[in-house]
Each structure stands twice: as C-alpha cells, then as structure tokens.
Design a protein around this nucleic acid. Structure first.
Lengths: 146, 146
DNA sequence: GTTCCTGCAAAAGCTTTGCAGAAGA
DNA sequence: TCTTCTGCAAAGCTTTTGCAGGAAC
C-alpha cells in the first residue's frame, strides 16, 4: 500500500522504499528523505544540511551530497537546475514547472502538461526528462513594490 | 537596417549593436560576438575561450567570462543552464527549447511555442524568462547503438 | 585626460573524492 | 564478518574578483 506524495510518510514506508532501491535505510537517509517528503520545498544541499542539523547534529556535508545524489540516481528525488550555481531538490516527481522569483529567490511550482510538449525536430529522439523553468517577479514581491 | 539572426553579421553591425547597449566595441568583444552570431552552437565559456584563442592568442579566461556576462546582461546572448556545472551561451534569442543528449553531450534546439505556456497559478506573477530543457538520447546516438 | 576593458593571478563557492572508522545486513 | 555508509579533510571545477597596464573615446 503505497502512500501518496505530499502526505507525511512513516519511517517504515521510507525504509521499504529505500530497500526496494537497494539503498541501506540508514538513520541519516531516512531522516533526509522524510524531511523532503513532508516539506513541499526546493532546498539546496546546504539548506538540507542546516535544516537537518537540528535533528542530526553530527550530520556532515558530504553525507548530504552523497545521499541526495543517491536519491536522484534512484529516481526518488528530482534535481532542479534553474540556477547554475546551485542544485535544488524536491520529492514531488509529478509533472510540473518551476518559477523562481528573481527578487526573493522563492521557487514556486505550477501545473503544466509536459506530455503535451512535443516537437517534430525531436522525432526519433528518446526523451527521458522534461524541465520547465520560468523566472521573473512573484506576486508577493510585486505587491510590496507598489 | 537590422540584420537577421543566423546571418553572419559584419563587424560594423556588431559595433553598432555594442554601442547601442553602451558597451565599448573592443576587438575581443566584436570577435566573440561575431563567433556566436555566426555559429548556431551552444558553447561554454571554456569552449569560447579555446575557439577564440585561434584568432586572439592573448585572450584571457576572465575577459571571456566578463564579456559573456556583459552580453547576457545586455540581452544580446541567452544563458542555457541545462546542466548545473556549466553555463552555455547562444546568440539565438528567438523562442525555442533545448535538448541535451546524455550520451554525446550535444545540445539541440527545437521549436516550441513558449507564448502558449501558461498557468493559472502564475496569475499576477511577472514572467521575464521561459526555459524548456529536455534530456535523453539523440537520434544519432540511438542509431549507433543498434 | 578619463573612462572603461583586458589579462594575470588569486579567491570564492559549490560539489566531489579518498579514506578510516562506524553502522547495517 | 562483510559490505556499505558516514564524516572529516582535501581536492576539483567553474566562475568571480582585484588590480595594474592598456585601449577606447
């Protein structure tokens, strides 16, 4: 019985998920995955580290990087490369686009039909991954600027 | 009389373009812009440097980076951040998407109607930039693998 | 003569790697 | 016990910055 995205999954379910992917369910991995599964945010590795240090004070930078890479490799997380100088991660694997506010830095999700995006020029190509990145100023920042 | 993209522009036209943007038309800038305007490729800064060194043996890495950043700032070039560990640049500012082959690394353009990409969730947002990045295996690499 | 640009070297910032000890199976 | 993971430090890469000399105006 698989839990849905956006619902806080229990440790048990996440342990099963990790086992299925051939990853040992270490304490660190479970906590990191749990955090990402229960927070609909788009943190960088650095942000994951500082957030998780509250719970896991001895957690190291290299473990975070290795863990996030392992999760991406196992297709449990998605990388967001909307900015070249940072990788962001998210647990939501469903189709959607990303908008980054150039003022406050916040990343917003938005619904979009990726399936519908086609191009004749890509006939015969194998497409594994589709990303849509918008940039601009978010509603909230526009309001503050009146 | 503005020249069209994809046509090899003369030094004179590029000089005018640079002047309009408030950028001094130095020899280096003209040559770099000329190169990008006449080659429909998506080079990294490092690739621009090694390519341009043939013509400008004393060209430095920092000049390339500063020049490319100045061109992006002036909206004469577009940045492609399909991969987080490299920025690619292109002269073609018209709407299109990018596909990167995970095998050969080649970046392909494809036509797409960015104007049509809308989302209710972004109502009230100011959108300045839209990027579409696909990844997978290109036709050519698929053929080699038969 | 001023201002802006170039090129060298050094620094910065994010990410990866090597390795010894610890944890999981 | 054996394999894999963690954490520390060091290294790797791309990109940025500071500054003196040079080019453009």
């Amino acid at each position: 019985m698989e839990r849905r995205i956006c619902m806080k999954s229990s440790d048990e379910t996440l342990t099963e998920k990790l086992n299925k992917k051939g990853l040992r369910p270490s304490h660190q991995r479970i906590k990191i995955l749990e955090y990402l599964a229960s927070h609909p945010c788009h943190p960088t590795a650095e942000q994951v580290l500082s957030e998780m240090k509250k719970e896991l004070p001895t957690l190291s930078k290299s473990t975070v990087y290795k863990t996030l890479n392992a999760f991406v490799e196992a297709e449990m997380l998605r990388e967001i490369t909307i900015e070249n100088n940072e990788i962001r991660y998210e647990y939501n694997l469903a189709d959607h686009g990303h908008f980054k506010c150039e003022k406050c830095g916040e990343v917003y999700d938005f619904e979009i039909d990726l399936e519908a995006l086609q191009s004749e020029k890509l006939n015969g190509f194998r497409i594994n991954d589709k990303n849509i990145y918008f940039k601009g100023i978010c509603k909230s920042c526009l309001k503050k600027n009146i």
